[in-house]
Amino acid sequence: MSEKNIWPLWEVFVRSSRGLSHVHAGSLHAPDAEMAVRNARDLYTRRNEGVSLWVVKSEDIISSDPDSKDQFFESPKGKDYRHATYYKASEGVKHL
């Protein structure tokens, strides 16, 4: 199998309707960006699943390191004052 005919991997994001975010749907192979977005249309919206598509080369995605998950995601825990449910005294007051 020769290297020269291998197409890169792309990640596909679908907006299912107006007002919603694009959500990761899966991936595919395509030779270039223009074909990737077309392949995404053919593969991931065969049943009216979307009104808009994003494709991005998989290798271009930067993600948080799973091994440093603790230092990344510990901080918000225990800070319940960031959530409306923390404020009990105002419960029952209308339009608040």
Partner: peptide, 15 residues
């Protein structure tokens, strides 16, 4: 299909 995949990859490289 090899020639097709190869041509598309070559085109992408040139671009």
């Amino acid at each position: 299909g090899a020639w097709v995949r190869e041509a598309a990859a070559a085109y992408a490289n040139k671009q």
